[in-house]
Design a protein around this nucleic acid. Structure first.
Lengths: 117, 117
DNA sequence: CTATCGTGCTACGTCTATCGTAGTACTTCT
DNA sequence: AGAAGTACTACGATAGACGTAGCACGATAG
């Protein structure tokens, strides 16, 4: 069964997260479920990958963290919102994706869905 | 200017090399030039990346190395040919690529080529 | 004759995104 | 009370990519 290896999705985890943050600010667990859902269960991001992406992107200024002040109690969530730099970065990654796709596809053979020919 | 980062092509260097070896056995320098040419100069594989891919793939049994017996003298080239396992692996990577593309594209916004609207 | 350029590698160390494992903490369901 | 779900953090390992450097040989130019 074909599944997505970390090496091929690498470099697009950030893009996926930013895409979801374009809609609205969110937090780890929610982002994780949204990725799973939007990818139709084809891809599930690992927790450690997700949180380290948050840390990295905040350090790079692509996202900002904040706490929901209304949260009465319970384990406090860390929310993230996208910054202008993040929006810019997202756009660049989209452009890069198109280029990458173009290049990779020159090396991919269309598999004629074979009837055992 | 948009260029392809190593993190996004990671995991497809092997695929590109194998694709070229499907055609015929080849060696480092030639593969390198073919990748550059076929990608229309959009991607140039680094020497170290290429040779470490050869080593890795030979260890994994996807390719086999041999020397050109006819080569009279000069620096001897190491040729590589693809194995059956390599052909199988290539096919899997092609299938994986399609899946990856499907997933990633759900997170990519089509950039309406803007006339500064 | 020497220098440079192109070809064809190898060695070695660094970087970094991802991931495995584990642990903490709080809530809700049973 | 215990388990399952939510919401993280810490720490170390892995592996592909890459920077730098060097070696070896042939051909071409000065």
């Amino acid at each position: 069964m074909v599944s997505i290896s970390s090496d091929v999705i690498r470099g697009y985890n950030d893009t996926m997260i930013l895409y979801l943050l374009l809609e609205r600010a969110s937090y780890g667990y929610e982002i994780s479920r949204q990725i799973k859902k939007l990818s139709e269960e084809k891809y599930v991001i690992k927790e450690t990958t997700l949180y380290s992406a948050f840390t990295r992107m905040e350090k790079n200024g692509y996202i900002e963290s904040f706490y929901d002040e209304d949260a009465s109690n319970g384990k406090r969530r860390t929310y993230y919102r996208i910054t202008d730099a993040g929006r810019q970065y997202y756009k660049e990654k989209c452009a890069e994706w198109k280029l990458t796709k173009e290049v990779v596809e020159k090396f991919i053979e269309e598999e004629q869905e074979n009837g055992d020919n």
